[in-house]
């Protein structure tokens, strides 16, 4: 069996911008006041009276896209954020995250924030507690127009997998200046999909990455020095004794 890739498939054409998903997520995950794990972006189509053809308004629900190439993971020094090889989720290990914030600008979709209460990185996690209880993620469960389908897109037997296979050619994703290959797919026109910015790795993390080889080289050099000394001690014996008198008074 192919490995899992949990993903969200959203029929954006069904979204009525009612924010049920936004509030359901907030309550389910006890997200602090003023912070949100998901959103609906309205496409600002200018109102044009009359019949089609005219630009119809579109609403684009979004959240962490559990990317194939997650730039947030690259920005995390500890692996507290990682792509779970078993499910394809981008996971935050809250116990390991200390809230350094490196991953936040690293997400081109601004899906991450520092939770004011836990003080750790936060984002959509597909509601693991609910899934453990056999329920769909809160946003999927509550959606009035059932615009969302969640599941393993690599399993053709699942709703999500079947939908994914059937519509592969017309599914769209949000594009960012840094391509992260998101796993949030839109069926139906989600409106402008090129708003993703560049993934920004903070200067401190860049410094850490750049200094790492230098540090490794220094440690290596020091190690080589020690080896040289050890070698000299073991093989060259007391050849220097005459010139370098050690302890004549002993």
């Amino acid at each position: 069996m192919a490995k899992q890739q949990l993903a969200m498939l959203i029929d954006a054409a069904k979204c009525i911008d009612c924010k049920a998903c936004v509030l359901a997520c907030k309550v389910a995950n006890e997200v602090p006041d003023g912070q949100w794990r998901n959103w609906i972006k309205p496409a600002d189509a200018a109102p044009a009276p009359g019949p089609a053809p005219r630009a119809k308004a579109r609403f684009q629900p979004g959240a962490c896209m559990h990317c194939e190439k997650p730039t947030c993971v690259e920005a995390c020094p500890t692996g507290a954020t990682y792509k779970d090889p078993a499910t394809g989720e981008v996971v935050i290990d809250e116990t390991l995250c200390i809230g350094c914030g490196n991953c936040i600008p690293a997400c081109p979709y601004d899906a991450r924030f520092r939770n004011e209460l836990t003080r750790k990185a936060d984002k959509c996690n597909y509601c693991p507690e609910r899934r453990a209880a056999g329920l769909a993620p809160a946003c999927v469960d509550t959606c009035p127009t059932k615009a969302r389908v969640f599941g393993d897109i690599n399993d053709p037997g699942s709703d999500a997998g079947a939908l994914y296979l059937r519509n592969q050619a017309r599914l769209t994703r949000v594009a960012a200046k840094t391509d992260t290959r998101p796993n949030m797919y839109y069926l139906g026109d989600p409106g402008p999909g090129d708003w993703g910015r560049e993934a920004v790795v903070p200067a401190s993390m860049v410094a850490m990455k750049r200094s790492a080889p230098v540090i490794k080289a220094l440690v290596g050099l020091s190690g080589l020095g020690v080896l040289a000394m050890l070698g000299r001690q073991l093989f060259a014996g007391d050849s220097g004794e005459g010139d370098h008198k050690e302890d004549s008074d002993a």
Partner: peptide, 27 residues
Amino acid sequence: LSDRTLGAEASGWISWAVTLHFIAVGL
């Protein structure tokens, strides 16, 4: 202190702390 008392405004400090911690230990 990062995930105990510090707020989001301290993120820059924390991130640099990680880097300096790493470099200092290496040296």
